[in-house]
């Protein structure tokens, strides 16, 4: 498993190195370009910050009031049959619906069970390997005003489920 960790750790430095060298060869004011991009990063954060405030409070309330545990315990017997970790269930349900609420719930899971624990790893992998499916389908179909979207939603949700199950399996193998 050491080699897989090595690949994971190598990916980011290697890409940064590649882009910087490529940039130096093709462009002269590379640091100015870097600064321009950084400013765009600030704007992205400013635009998601209000949503995060609202959702973190809502999800914190779900957990602290005890209602989340009741819901989880209610579906636990079903999840046990398929050996699905119950702690992940809220994330699996919210992930296709809303990007910012899944950030909130993933953070909540990592805080409660430990970011480097198996549950924390699974939550991270699900966050990174899936998209906000419903939102994506909505903007791509509404921009051309089609009415019949055929089986798009079904196929995407099946694939999301496969992504989530693969995340669980690979994290169990690796840890």
């Amino acid at each position: 498993m050491k080699i897989l960790d090595f690949i994971s750790n190598l990916a980011m430095p290697l890409i940064i190195l590649f882009i910087v060298i490529y940039g130096v060869f093709e462009k002269n004011k590379i640091f100015d370009t870097f600064l321009e991009g950084t400013k765009e990063g600030i704007n992205i954060m400013i635009s998601i910050f209000p949503t995060l405030i609202g959702l973190f409070v809502a999800i914190g309330a779900l957990r602290s009031s005890g209602i989340l545990d009741i819901i989880i315990n209610f579906i636990e017997p079903i999840l046990n049959i398929v050996n699905f970790p119950k702690e992940i269930m809220p994330l699996a349900l919210l992930r296709p619906i809303s990007g910012s609420s899944s950030i909130a719930i993933a953070t909540d899971i990592m805080k409660n069970y430990g970011v480097d624990s198996q549950i924390g790893m699974i939550a991270s992998t699900i966050m990174g390997s899936t998209e906000t499916t419903l939102y994506t389908i909505a903007i791509y179909t509404s921009c051309i005003k089609v009415k019949k979207i055929r089986f798009v939603l079904l196929v995407s949700l099946i694939a999301d489920m496969v992504g989530i199950i693969t995340s669980i399996i690979i994290c169990r193998i690796m840890s």
């Binding site: 994971s8 990916a11 480097d116 990174g128 693969t166």
Partner: peptide
């Protein structure tokens, strides 16, 4: 995800890159 893991004080925030590749490609 790396940024979130970093903010939670992970020992190794980039550890999940390989598992994420596997999960997203299979999906």
């Amino acid at each position: 995800v790396i940024a979130i893991r970093n903010s939670m004080g992970s020992d190794n925030p980039t550890k999940i890159i390989f598992p994420i590749w596997v999960a997203s490609i299979s999906a």
